[in-house]
C-alpha cells in the first residue's frame, strides 16, 4: 500500500518536472505569439500575457512585406538546398575514396579533411572577407555557399565513411564483374544503400546553415541574396518603433523552421541523434 502511494507521489513529481521545464522552454514563444497580434500601445502592461482588444492580423501583413519575407525565404531555401546537395556529393565521393580506394595517403587526407570540424568557423570571418573581396564574389550566392558547404563537409564525410564501411564489399565485386566503372559503382550501387546516412547528413547540414547569419552579415551587402534571419535583423523601415510588428516579424521568421520541424519531427529527432552520437 505504502509502496503504491510512494509510486503515486513519484508520478506526480515526474509530471510536475516535465510540465515545468516545458513551460520554461515554450512560454517565451507563447508570449511572442501573444504580443505579435496585439496593438503596439497594449504592450506596456504589467500582466504576463495580454488579451488584445482586437486581433491585429495587419501586423503580419506589414511584417510580410516590410521584412522581404518571400525573397529571403526563397534565398534561404535555394542556398540551403544547394549546400545540402553539394555536401552530399562531395562527402560520398571523398568518403568512398578514403574508405575503399587503395592509395597511400588515404588516411592522411581523411584526417586533414576531418580537421575542419575542429576549426571555429568565426575565426575565418576576417581572412575570408579579404579573399572574397579580392575575388569579387562578395554579395553573390557563392560567398555563402562556399563556406556553408566547406564547414558542413567534415561532419558529412565523417558520417559517410562510417556508413560506407558497413556496406559489404561483395556488392561492389559483383558490380566490377558486370563491368561497372568506379563512378557507376558510387552513384548506382553505393548511394542507394546510403539512404539513412543521406537523410542524417541532409538534416545536420540544414540545421547548421539554415539559421546562420554572421557570414551573410559580413559577405553580403545588398538584399539580393540575404537569407531569412535578415527579415528580423534588417527590419527597419517605417515600423521600426512599432514593437508589435517586430514581434510579428520574429514569429514569421521562426515559423518555417518550426512548421517543418513539427511535420518531420520523427525523422529530425532520429537524424540529430545519429549525427550527434556518431559525430
Amino acid at each position: 500500500m505504502s509502496k503504491k502511494k510512494k509510486a503515486g507521489i513519484g508520478r506526480v513529481f515526474m509530471w510536475v518536472i516535465l510540465i515545468a521545464i516545458a513551460i520554461v522552454q515554450i512560454f517565451p514563444l507563447i508570449w511572442l505569439l501573444d504580443f505579435s497580434v496585439a496593438s503596439s500601445t497594449e504592450m506596456f502592461t504589467s500582466g504576463l500575457l495580454i488579451i488584445p482588444k482586437k486581433i491585429m492580423w495587419s501586423n503580419y501583413s506589414k511584417a510580410f512585406t516590410d521584412g522581404h519575407f518571400l525573397l529571403y525565404l526563397k534565398n534561404s531555401i535555394l542556398i540551403n538546398v544547394l549546400a545540402v546537395i553539394l555536401v552530399l556529393i562531395a562527402s560520398i565521393m571523398a568518403g568512398f575514396a578514403c574508405r575503399r580506394m587503395r592509395w597511400k595517403l588515404s588516411g592522411f587526407v581523411k584526417t586533414m579533411l576531418l580537421m575542419g570540424m575542429m576549426i571555429p568557423i568565426h575565426a575565418t570571418l576576417l581572412p575570408n572577407y579579404k579573399i572574397y573581396t579580392e575575388l569579387g564574389i562578395t554579395d553573390t550566392m557563392w560567398a555563402l555557399l562556399i563556406p556553408y558547404v566547406a564547414f558542413s563537409l567534415p561532419q558529412g564525410l565523417f558520417l559517410m565513411t562510417s556508413f560506407i564501411e558497413s556496406i559489404p564489399v561483395e556488392l561492389e565485386e559483383a558490380a566490377v564483374i558486370d563491368g561497372c566503372g568506379i563512378y557507376r559503382i558510387i552513384f548506382q550501387v553505393i548511394t542507394p544503400m546510403l539512404k539513412t546516412s543521406i537523410a542524417t547528413v541532409s538534416i545536420m547540414t540544414f540545421l547548421n546553415n539554415w539559421n546562420e547569419f554572421m557570414m551573410a552579415r559580413i559577405y553580403l551587402s545588398s538584399d539580393k541574396w540575404k537569407t531569412l534571419p535578415f527579415s528580423i535583423l534588417d527590419f527597419t523601415g517605417q515600423y521600426s518603433s512599432n514593437y508589435a510588428i517586430q514581434f510579428a516579424v520574429m514569429a514569421l521568421t521562426a515559423a518555417p523552421a518550426i512548421i517543418v520541424y513539427i511535420i518531420l519531427n520523427k525523422h529530425i529527432t532520429k537524424g540529430v541523434a545519429m549525427g550527434a552520437v556518431k559525430g
Binding site: 556529393i89 562531395a90 571523398a94 575565418t124 575570408n128 562556399i146 566547406a150 564547414f151 563537409l153
Partner: peptide, 20 residues
Amino acid sequence: LILPGLLLFIFAILAPICLS
C-alpha cells in the same frame, strides 16, 4: 573523387588560416 572536398578545404579553411 577527392578533388571537390580538397578544393573546398583549401579554399575555405586552409587559405584563410594561412592568411590569418
